[in-house]
Design a protein around this nucleic acid. Structure first.
Lengths: 247, 247
DNA sequence: CGCGAACTTGAGGCGTGTCAACCCCTGTGG
DNA sequence: CCACAGGGGTTGACACGCCTCAAGTTCGCG
């Protein structure tokens, strides 16, 4: 277990310093001054927590008491109905927040599951709120991130409500590559962390349809796909598929 | 035009008092003390604004500078792609906020259109943020409402991604009646404010499918429908249709 | 009274789901 | 080092639910 040797460093009074984090320009502290960054060091993030591949950061029904920022690794959030149907509501990567939907009810309504070994920054919501009062630009950025999640969800609703299978998959790939690119990864080649079934759940499609669509994209010369490895050779071709669709 | 005679009262320095609003237990100020309520009087809501049936409160591309609370009337928000396809992302009624998705980018990404003559409370975001700093429970409630919108959107994604036409329409009706009931209206009878096409857009269905589904529900004895008037006679029957689905 | 918008209803087509068989890759144990 | 098992992925045939297209009805409004 890679993570366990680090655990002592990330627990208890040992402070996690946002000011030295390589994600500080992507994550919650965006826009804070040097001075403000140092004021939140050790006070915003109570601890780092390891979550192994396949394990849950939290589950539906768990009490909400902290917001999580992905530090390393990859997550999915899944909303499950009492008759067992599941909807993947999002995939989260480095610098993205998890748990925002639970602030209202104080109870988590989704499962957050690691799609690979991962580490998250634990931000107790009580502390986050207090720091937000002290540092207005932190509160502002937190509001912006909640707003961004709402806007992203509206985009997802558009995909689910208006698009055909090919358009959905193309939109998914472009969104994913765009976010990876913003984090310094290749914008053309990726090792997917999620299964066809998980992609399908997010997109409102069955796994066979996702698989068929990727095969068709390959046959059309838009990309190469082999299991979970995907190389996009014609991003403009993908964009053309969803033509008018903004964002 | 009913509203115009009130306009002078709602403009400029004339203060809008949340402490005397009949929505104060439903809207943003939920949970504020008497004292806190009086502190936001005339400072949170800069003005009330009338929006006539069919007109837009704001449109895609408009600069964001205020959050709106519905005071009277009924709205839809619509996300439109550049090729003209539209997705209704929500319907908003009294006490619900509009515009939260624009905080991040500072530009509105949806049209907010009144489905009947309406009045909204205009809350300049700058003032809202400042008051949030001054009154922590206001900031807390604002965060809760943003969180609630995220959770609602996830529910909508579940509906779009997992449900069949009948389930979608049933879920829509139950959600609508539940929200109306919370505002003191009948939970069984309603005059819909939106067209079949708008319902369909929200649910990812065509208007004919919505129409057929309502007719089928009537034939099954679940409700009476006549144009936009709907009376639900068997709410448990509707709930049974979406069985396991939580919320 | 007549027009247009919204709604209803029917017939037929199509895209995606369903079901099933097979393939690929990885890990495990003999 | 190979055999085997199992999960994930691919591909095909067929079914069916919703969309499309079209005609007719109802209602509100000038």
């Amino acid at each position: 277990m890679v993570g366990s040797v680090f655990r002592p460093l990330h627990r208890g009074s040992c402070s996690v310093q946002c000011s030295h984090c390589n994600l500080r320009e992507i994550c919650l502290p965006v826009g804070l001054t040097r001075d403000e960054l140092e004021r939140i060091d050790g006070r915003l993030v109570a601890a780092r927590r390891h979550v192994s591949h396949g394990e849950a950061l939290f589950r539906t029904g768990d009490r909400f008491d902290a917001v999580y920022a992905v530090w390393t690794g990859f997550f999915k959030t899944v909303l499950t109905s009492s008759d067992g149907r599941a909807q993947v509501t999002g995939f989260q990567m480095a610098g993205e927040l998890i748990g925002l939907d639970a602030i209202d009810k104080g109870v988590h309504a989704v499962d957050a599951v690691a799609l690979e070994d991962a580490q998250v920054c634990v931000m107790p919501f009580h502390d986050l709120a207090a720091l937000g009062r002290e540092i207005p630009s932190l509160q502002a950025q937190f509001s912006r991130l909640m707003s961004r999640e709402i806007a992203n969800d509206h985009e997802a609703m558009f995909v689910l409500g208006n698009m055909h299978a090919e358009e959905r998959v193309a939109a998914f790939l472009l969104n994913l590559m765009h976010r990876l690119q913003a984090r310094g990864f290749s914008s053309s080649s990726v090792e997917l962390r999620m299964s066809r079934e998980e992609i399908g759940s997010f997109l409102g499609l069955k796994l066979e349809t996702v698989s068929r669509t990727l095969s068709k994209f390959q046959a059309s010369g838009l990309l190469f796909v082999r299991q979970r490895h995907i190389t996009i050779t014609d991003p403009n071709g993908l964009r053309h598929l969803i033509d008018g669709v903004s964002v």
